[in-house]
Nucleic acid binder design. Structure first.
Lengths: 330, 330
DNA sequence: TTATCCACCGCAAACATTTGCGAAAATGTT
DNA sequence: AACATTTTCGCAAATGTTTGCGGTGGATAA
């Protein structure tokens, strides 16, 4: 068998030049309808499909987008990826997904991989303590658009797409005041992340004005940290009457204790989270939360990317508003 | 700026031929240590990195593996993907992840995309009602190894890697007998999937021998189906004393009802699932389950793939044994 | 009849790399 | 010194496509 079809093979069969075949397949006006027909027929018959490497080599475009996240297995990232993949496909782009494992080194290696595969653009959610910012600016300068999402750089001027973190935290804080909570344990994520800082600052800004409520802030690198903090706190003589969790991961860690604790939700202790929207519904009672939808954010991100690729647009920081979802934990 | 470095640019600077530069960088024995040194130094300085497209074009290898799943956002698939990605990276491979959305058409389009990007191998978990088997055999014949995982084809002779489905279901059935359950509602997934058939057959084979227990089988296309079936069944005058869920998705659907139901777990009704291991721990009490680890399966799959790529090995169907994880729901 | 124009098509370079083969230079052998 | 051998390197083809430019043949205009 002739193995895979190429322009050359078609041209030989039809006894034309390679260029004519190439142009015919692309509907170039220079080629007569007659030849176009012949070429297309044979091409279909031979199941011709352009060698993407040759095309990429020639055009220096890959139709592939890189996507780097600390971990795929994370509610938020999954839904984000899912959305991006779907939308990207519609525009003929495919996704190359890389995990940094929250390791700055692997993150920069992943960036290099993206460069190596000459992706047309990169989506990235930063690893904690990422130190790749020189790479970022370098790639952007080299005309590889980078869109940061969710965990975005604190400093620098970049294209970002993220949840309205302040807004979400503010909504949560207001809910806590509305429900007249007195003593809250607020669990935040990794303190080096800007997303943590933003949420914490906005959260405290509201609550600190309220003299009737006292807040204890704890940082949790992972779910286990949350489990530990909650365990410690609820065994005190004067336990909090509310627990706020800044993320799904933390919520899960906290609930590991709470679901078996003597304290009942929401009578003895109430719970509120910022979440992607799947986990809170699994508990009993269902946890109230401020939603941050990865799916919607994904759609926004890919839209921005496509804009950016067809014409360099000014740098923008896009925010996706959040909404409050009522459970029975408040 | 000279933009990206190429062999040519290096060769001009050093005033040697392109081939010498190429060979020097690959430590070809024909090249003297002296030139090698010079070349390598300049290459490092210029941050040379081979153009992957040119390499691929020449060698017809891409160092990319395709991975097709119905949906990324699925506990099992995530952990599988995560494992594959990690292991693949170690061997210099990257992953191109595609979602079929359980749509046979999109599945075959994804396969074509894999072909288009000339991936070196494909991992695939079938969409329900997949009709791509001609494509499979065609690609395998064209020397693109395909490893099926989790949801594998029923008929045909393929390389598969999956959970020991019969074993898992058998373990579950035995547990049900041990705990002297009398009336069980068994919730299975999409009946067109071989994974469903295998689990159901093995499950029933054990329980049908047992005259003291009656089993009601229901199929659920999704979690909502499970919710519905459970709702209907537990409101009967004579509800079951046990519910078996064949997957995480179904467990979640079932628990949506059970966690608020008047029936207490495990006193009034016990629950057992086959699961990837994350979800069952979220409930109270924690659900007992037979573990099917996507992570482990992923490691197995990539190992098999690498074997297969370096030398065509005979077709094999690999099974990963499962283990019973005790919760408090039985 | 000669010049002009258009529709249609092919040549060849370019993209960056790999590699078989041959050739020059250096070294070793009598 | 003449020959053989090894070391070291360059030429050129090949991978499959895209594309600027130039060329043919026929039709129309002058």
């Amino acid at each position: 068998m002739g193995q895979t079809a190429t322009l050359k093979k078609i041209s030989v069969q039809l006894n034309m030049s390679i260029s004519t075949v190439s142009r015919a397949l692309k509907n170039h006006p220079d080629i007569s309808e007659n030849t176009k027909r012949k070429v297309k027929e044979l091409a279909a018959l031979m199941e011709y499909e352009p060698n993407s490497y040759a095309v990429n080599l020639r055009t220096n475009k890959s139709k592939v987008l890189g996507l780097i996240v600390p971990a795929i297995s994370n509610m938020f990232n999954e839904s984000f990826i899912s959305a991006v993949e779907n939308e990207a496909r519609k525009s003929g782009y495919s996704l190359m997904i890389l995990q940094s494992g929250d390791d700055p080194l692997q993150e920069s290696e992943n960036l290099k991989l993206c460069k190596h595969y000459r992706v047309d653009g990169i989506f990235i959610s930063l690893a904690a303590e990422s130190y790749s910012s020189e790479l970022f600016t370098k790639y952007i300068a080299a005309d590889i658009p980078i869109i940061f999402f969710d965990r975005v750089p604190e400093a620098g001027n970049f294209d970002t797409v993220c949840m309205a973190d302040e807004e979400a935290a503010t909504m949560a804080a207001h809910a806590i005041i509305t429900y007249k909570k007195k003593k809250v344990l607020a669990l935040f994520g990794n303190p080096v992340l800007s997303i943590t800082k933003k949420r914490k600052d906005a959260f405290l800004k509201i609550l600190e004005k309220e003299k009737t409520v006292v807040v204890e802030v704890q940082y949790c690198i992972n779910g286990a940290d949350a489990t530990q903090h909650v365990t410690k706190t609820i065994s005190k003589t004067n336990p909090p009457d509310h627990i706020f969790c800044m993320s799904d991961e933390i919520l899960i860690g906290a609930m590991k204790v709470l679901k078996n604790a003597p304290l009942k939700i929401p009578e003895d202790i109430s719970v509120l989270a910022i979440s992607n929207g799947f986990i809170p519904g699994l508990f009993n009672p269902e946890i109230s939360y401020v939603e941050t939808s990865g799916f919607e954010l994904g759609k926004l991100a890919i839209k921005r990317m496509l804009e950016n690729m067809e014409a360099k647009t000014p740098i923008k920081a896009i925010m996706l508003p959040s909404r409050f979802v009522e459970g029975n934990s408040l």
